[in-house]
């Protein structure tokens, strides 16, 4: 049951963990926009430094963070190679078979892959240091103004939090059903793809049936406990900005100014 950790949250007490999730989301949002305006060595350097310092402040072992990025390494390398061979700017550096590699291509390739890497690093710092439910709360709060145009913000957030609540339950159930089916000779793990897909059907059907039953009972229980929509509801989990958040905002603005100055 160890693999039941939802998302990739790593519990901790670091400064980054304790930041308000809204702060983290806002900073990352602007970071992601700004990174597309980087165009000089120094401007990249500033953004990279910001990301690495943030990563260090999470106190999560570097190895763990890098392992978490594993699925995207391939994409980063691919981006790099693509730029290397497609861009035709600057001087010809060398030749691989019939391909000429230009100096501009090398720089472009580095820049784009670095951009990509930093984007993914920053967003994964968010999910590494923030519980999914805190992210949900932050989204609900930040989308608050949309309630005025009848956008169902509260319902959306509740839906997300209930999904988060039921993911482990449904995973446990999947495991139970798959064991039960395996004991009847259904094999999900070996054999031709076609057979394996067929074997999933007896797993999914009972899972869906039970999920619908759960949903119905949960709705009944929620109603019995006085749920009547978002109106007039108070909140137990509270988001509060602290001096830490203001400090980050100020330093981030400072970083942005520095960045703008460093642009070519």
């Amino acid at each position: 049951m160890n693999n039941l950790i939802i998302g990739q949250y790593v519990p901790g007490e670091s400064m980054v963990h304790q930041l308000d999730p809204r702060t983290k989301i806002t900073v990352i949002f602007f970071y992601v926009i700004v990174i597309f305006f980087a165009n000089s060595f120094f401007s990249y350097f500033i953004l990279a430094a910001f990301a690495f310092i943030s990563a260090m402040l999470t106190r999560i072992p570097a190895g763990y963070i890098i392992r978490g990025l594993k699925p995207v390494w391939l994409l980063i390398v691919f981006t790099f190679l693509l730029h290397l061979f497609v861009t035709k700017e600057g001087d010809v550096l060398f030749r691989i078979f019939s391909f000429y590699v230009y100096s501009g291509a090398l720089i472009q390739g580095f820049a784009i892959s670095l951009r990509f890497f930093l984007l993914i690093l920053m967003t994964s710092l968010l999910t590494l240091t923030t519980t999914p439910i805190a992210i949900t709360d932050a989204i609900e709060d930040m989308l608050g103004p949309l309630k005025k145009v009848r956008f169902p913000v509260h319902e959306l957030a509740l839906m997300m939090s209930i999904s988060l609540r039921f993911i482990p339950t449904l995973m446990q159930e999947t495991e139970k059903i798959s064991k039960a089916q395996a004991s009847r000779g259904v094999d999900f793990r070996t054999g031709p793809i076609k057979d394996r897909i067929k074997a999933i059907v007896p797993l999914l059907v009972p899972l869906f049936v039970s999920a619908f039953k759960r949903a119905e009972e949960l709705a009944m229980a929620m109603e019995a406990r006085g749920y009547k929509g978002g109106e007039g509801r108070t909140k137990f989990r509270e988001l509060q900005l602290s001096s830490r958040d203001y400090a980050l905002f100020i330093s981030f603005v400072f970083v942005l100014l520095l960045f703008w100055w460093a642009r070519a």
């Binding site: 439910i133 609540r165 759960r214 019995a224």
Partner: peptide, 15 residues
């Protein structure tokens, strides 16, 4: 009037 139902899982709303 408060109510507790049969299935422990299907009335647990919070995370």
């Amino acid at each position: 009037v408060g109510m507790v139902f049969q299935n422990p899982d299907n009335q647990f709303v919070g995370t």
